[in-house]
Amino acid sequence: MTGDHATRVVVHPSATAVAEATAARLLLTIVDTLSVQDRVDVVLTGGTVGIETLAAVSRSPLAAAIDWTSVHAWWGDERFVPAGDPDRNEGQAQAALLGALPMPEENIHRMGASTEFPSAEEAAFSYAEDIAVQGAPDWDVLMLGMGPDGHVASLFPGHPGYAERGAEAIAVHDSPKPPPTRVSLTLESIRRAKRVWIVAAGAAKADVVARSLHGDLKLPAAAVRGTVETLWLVDAEAVAKV
């Protein structure tokens, strides 16, 4: 286990149940947080279960109880491809949830596309500037998917970006998973979050879930944690080898 508090594992019977339960958890956390502070900063994730979670949020009656003008949406990583490319996490999130919410455009902090910036480095620098302008928030909830290689955001095992320090966001080249060029929050930025939720489902993830929960720091998924809470929100198949 990693972190100053116990990492908790919450097991659901299926990937669909993970998405539905995580959506409910996110909505309740936003409601509770807005009762004690003026704004909430949420870092969204892509991936199958991540986008299913956002779609479940949009279907929930509880969504209508939230003042979305007080919520800011961010991303853990993004594919450095043209705006409108179906590979972009922000476009999928827009279709699944953000387009249905009364959230001001200035509250949606998208990572730059290759049609807006000449390089991923410049897109990462711009995102770091945006984070600084917003007061470098301690992310209230930071959600992460996890790949079968144990990567989170676009931090890959053995890849230089995983070890990079001193920045909020970085360019990632030669990603083991296509597309090869990306922008990602750094491990430092992720670990500033109050709550880190790793969402994973399926038998293909079982090996790395077990290794991560046993503290194998070769895997970025094992190194992420929140300052208040670290949750693994998984289905039964994903924890079969723990």
Rank of each mutant, 00 (worst) to 15 (best):
T2S: 14
R8M: 10
H12R: 13
P13N: 12
S14V: 04
V18C: 08
A21C: 11
T22F: 10
L28H: 15
T29M: 09
I30P: 09
V31G: 12
D32R: 15
V36N: 13
D41G: 01
V42R: 04
L54V: 09
A55S: 14
R59N: 06
L62H: 04
A63H: 03
W68N: 00
T69V: 00
W74R: 02
F80L: 13
P82C: 00
D85Y: 06
L98S: 07
G99E: 09
A100N: 08
A100W: 13
R110I: 01
S114M: 10
E121L: 07
F125C: 14
D130H: 02
P137K: 02
W139T: 03
M146C: 15
D149R: 11
D149E: 07
H151I: 04
V152H: 14
F156L: 02
H159Y: 10
P160G: 15
A163D: 15
R165M: 00
A167S: 14
E168P: 10
A169P: 02
I170K: 09
D174V: 05
P176T: 09
K177S: 00
P178R: 00
T181R: 04
T181K: 01
R182W: 01
L185W: 07
L187E: 04
R192N: 05
I198W: 15
D207K: 14
A210F: 10
R211I: 02
R211L: 14
L213M: 11
L213V: 07
H214G: 12
L217K: 13
L219N: 10
V224A: 08
T230H: 04
W232L: 05
V234W: 08
D235I: 13
D235N: 13
E237T: 03
A238N: 06
V239T: 05
